[in-house]
């Protein structure tokens, strides 16, 4: 069962994992109000479609009233086939490197935590590192070091420390919450001044 986005956000908060400011919106006006002066992202969330980007359920870089209204209408139209659904508005994140942090349950060993370069790369190049939970800080550093794309991911020392901490926290979350079967933080945008978990998908 897919956990409600904001329930998921609360779980992350408890483990000190910061996710981007988001809000369910009920109308395009709602979305415009939430955007204020900033650029917006609109996403349609439905248990019937887990691959949001591929299905065109993510509208990025919405900068004015007109584009927000248009994107909202398009999502509403797609939503008819995906009932029940919600539309979520998020502030657009700029720059940084996209990574994926995930978790699942191996039938034999138990909870595993995963790190990969975000977007299409993790699938295309099978470039990811996996460990059994709970992990130590050293395990997290070893995971980063294991990636072929480590030089892209850790373009500065700060990024390494941030990813390490995120991995340790995620592993703790997975280990302590038996009912969570799968978790995707994809993408997490890592910048030189911080990070943002942009999308959360938790299956119970």
């Amino acid at each position: 069962m897919l956990l409600d986005y904001f329930e998921g956000k609360k779980v992350l908060d408890r483990y000190g994992i910061r996710s981007i400011e988001s809000k369910y919106v009920e109308s395009s006006e709602d979305a415009v109000k939430f955007a204020g002066e900033e650029k917006l992202v609109l996403k349609l969330i439905s248990e019937k479609q887990l691959h949001k980007s591929k299905a065109g359920l993510v509208k990025l870089d919405l900068s004015d009233h007109e584009s927000i209204v248009k994107a909202y209408k398009e999502l509403e139209a797609k939503g008819r086939a995906l009932h029940p659904y919600r539309i979520i508005a998020q502030k657009m994140v700029r720059g940084g490197v996209e990574i994926i942090i995930g978790g699942n349950e191996d039938p034999q060993f138990g909870k595993m935590v995963l790190l990969g370069l975000g977007g299409i790369y993790v699938e295309a190049f099978k470039d990811f590192a996996l460990r059994l939970c709970p992990i130590t800080s050293q395990d997290a550093l070893d995971m980063i070091d294991q990636l072929k794309s480590r030089k892209v991911v850790t373009y500065d020392g700060e990024a390494t420390v941030r990813i390490r901490d995120l991995l340790v926290r995620t592993s703790k979350l997975l280990y302590e919450n038996r009912d969570i079967k799968e978790l995707d933080l994809n993408p997490v945008v890592v910048r030189s001044d911080g990070y943002d978990v942009v999308d959360i998908r938790i299956l119970k």
Binding site: D106, P107, Q108, F109, M112, A129, L130, R131, L132, I135, D139, D142, Q146
Partner: peptide, 15 residues
């Protein structure tokens, strides 16, 4: 024998 998922095994060997 159950040859569980190779990736999980490999992860544990590495870890």
């Amino acid at each position: 024998a159950l040859a569980g998922s190779y990736q999980a095994h490999e992860a544990i060997f590495r870890q």
